[in-house]
Computed example of a mutant assay.
Amino acid sequence: MSDHILRGRTEEEVLWFRRRGFLQAAAAWTSMGGFAAAWAQQRSNVVDLQGDAIVNGERLRPGAFIQSGDQLATGPNSTVVFVVGSSAFHVRQNSRLVVERGATLNSISVLRMLTGAVVSVWGKGSSRQITTPTLTAGIRGTGVYTEIFSAEAYRTYFCNCYGVVELASGGDRATSRADYHQSFWGEPQPKGGRLLTPARAINHTDEEVEYVAKLVNQQPNWVAMGRRGEKDGRGYMEPQPEYMHPVGPPAPAPAR
């Protein structure tokens, strides 16, 4: 089990992938051919549902299909795992988001997050984004964890677990290239003059990213490389100085 730090989350939330029901559903999803087969056979693309989820104002029923263009919300103690095209998502409890349509019905242009937390894995492609109230992430092919801290003026936590992401918050910009969890805050107000600041890896595990990736036949970099790195939020396999983070160490407070 990989190391993880929790902030406002429980062990049960981050170890959801251990549930027998999910493991059976994930194995069945893969053995039956994944999304292409589900689409061709007009089967649901919902791999796992716990509790209640609302899609376009109506309760998500067994056998339903979540597609681009839909609005999705989960309630307390409710989660949903689904796949659209080459992208897979685990939406945690108390989340609200919009899955905006891309060039085709089975492609996503924007995952517009309003509240909550999502683990997502994206196949290679262009013109995809994750947006929150305080951060925009341009997605290539990658696995990421995004969480909005509503009690902190919608401060956003964003981890590029592996891959390449273009980040923006206000006028701040950064390119994130990570093999192993490169983490950021999207600040609601500047900290040390910055709206993009470095963060540690919190509230998600290697294993849950791995399970979501398997649903779209992906491997995180650390699986392909056969080893884990330093889970310090800097994104590298080997320990690195603090300044090696793309947005550097926290800026000093301005002189008075």
Results as ranks from 00 to 15, higher is better:
Pro190Arg: 02
Leu15Phe: 15
Glu166Gly: 10
Leu23Ala: 13
Gly57Asp: 11
Gly143Asn: 14
Gly233Glu: 07
Trp16Lys: 02
Asp48Thr: 07
Pro239Val: 09
Leu60Phe: 05
Ser31Asn: 13
Pro188Tyr: 15
Gly125Thr: 03
His4Tyr: 11
Glu58Thr: 15
Pro190Asn: 05
Asp172Arg: 08
Pro76Ser: 08
Lys231Phe: 05
Ala38Asp: 15
Gln67Gly: 03
Asn203Val: 11
Phe22Asn: 12
Gly171Gln: 02
Val99Thr: 08
Asn203Ser: 03
Thr146Cys: 10
Leu6Cys: 04
Glu230Tyr: 15
Ser107His: 05
Gly57Tyr: 13
Ala40Met: 14
Leu15Gln: 13
Gln71His: 10
Ala137Asn: 07
Leu49Met: 15
Pro250Cys: 00
Ile54Thr: 14
Arg173Ile: 05
Arg7His: 04
Gln182Thr: 14
Asp52Ile: 07
Gly233Pro: 14
Gly192Leu: 01
Phe35Cys: 03
Thr115Ser: 05
Val110His: 13
Ile108Lys: 01
Met244Arg: 13
Asn56Gly: 14
Ala88Asn: 07
Asp179Thr: 08
Val144Thr: 10
Met113Ala: 04
Asp52Leu: 14
Ala88Cys: 11
Arg234Glu: 09
Leu15Ala: 08
Met1Pro: 12
Glu152Cys: 07
Glu208Cys: 03
Asn94Asp: 11
Val209Pro: 06
Ile148Thr: 03
Ala174Trp: 07
Val47Phe: 01
Leu23Pro: 11
Ile66Cys: 03
Ala73Gln: 11
Cys159Thr: 08
Leu111Gln: 07
Pro249Ser: 03
Gly63His: 13
Gly123Asn: 12
Pro246Lys: 01
Ile54Arg: 06
Pro188Gln: 12
Gln189Gly: 02
Gly123Tyr: 06
Arg194Ser: 13
Thr30Phe: 00
Arg227Gln: 12
Pro198Tyr: 01
Gly57Asn: 13
His90Val: 00
Leu195Ile: 09
